[in-house]
Amino acid sequence: MSGRELWADGRLRVAWASRDWPTLIRRYRALAGISQQRFGELVGMDQGYVSRLERGRARVTSEDVVARFVEGLKVPTELGGVQKMRAVTWDPPAELRDRVAHARTTGRMDVRTADWIGRVLVEHRRAEDEVGGRALWPVVLSQLDTVTEMIPHSSGSVADRLMLLAAEHAHWLSWVAWQDQRLGSALAWIDLAHGWAVDGGHADMASWAQRVRAHYSLQQGDPVRALRTAEAARYVGSRPLSPAAEAVAVHQAAMAAAALSERDRARRLAEEARELALRAPEAADRPGWLYWLDPLRAQLQVADTAYACRAWSDAACGFRSALPLLQGYARDHAYYRARLEDAERRI
Results as ranks from 00 to 15, higher is better:
207 S>W: 02
208 W>I: 03
208 W>N: 12
209 A>K: 05
210 Q>K: 07
210 Q>R: 03
211 R>V: 09
211 R>A: 13
211 R>L: 08
211 R>Q: 15
212 V>W: 10
212 V>S: 10
212 V>M: 13
214 A>E: 08
214 A>M: 10
214 A>D: 07
215 H>D: 08
215 H>R: 07
216 Y>S: 01
217 S>M: 14
218 L>C: 07
219 Q>T: 00
220 Q>N: 08
221 G>C: 14
222 D>P: 03
224 V>C: 12
224 V>A: 13
225 R>M: 14
225 R>S: 13
227 L>D: 01
228 R>H: 11
229 T>M: 09
230 A>F: 05
230 A>V: 05
231 E>G: 10
231 E>K: 13
231 E>M: 04
232 A>Y: 07
233 A>H: 04
233 A>L: 04
234 R>W: 00
234 R>Y: 00
234 R>P: 01
234 R>H: 01
236 V>R: 06
237 G>V: 03
237 G>T: 08
237 G>K: 05
238 S>K: 11
239 R>K: 12
239 R>L: 09
239 R>N: 07
239 R>I: 00
239 R>T: 08
242 S>K: 06
244 A>C: 07
244 A>L: 09
245 A>L: 11
246 E>Q: 14
246 E>G: 14
246 E>H: 03
246 E>S: 12
247 A>G: 09
248 V>L: 10
248 V>R: 00
250 V>R: 06
250 V>E: 03
250 V>C: 11
251 H>Y: 13
253 A>K: 08
253 A>C: 06
254 A>N: 08
254 A>I: 14
255 M>N: 12
255 M>P: 00
255 M>E: 13
256 A>P: 02
256 A>R: 06
257 A>P: 02
257 A>Y: 13
258 A>R: 08
258 A>P: 02
259 A>L: 00
260 L>C: 14
260 L>V: 14
261 S>P: 00
261 S>T: 15
262 E>M: 15
263 R>T: 14
263 R>H: 15
264 D>G: 13
265 R>N: 12
266 A>N: 11
267 R>H: 05
267 R>K: 10
268 R>E: 12
269 L>F: 14
269 L>E: 03
269 L>A: 15
270 A>Q: 11
270 A>C: 13
272 E>M: 11
273 A>I: 01
273 A>R: 02
274 R>E: 01
275 E>V: 02
275 E>L: 10
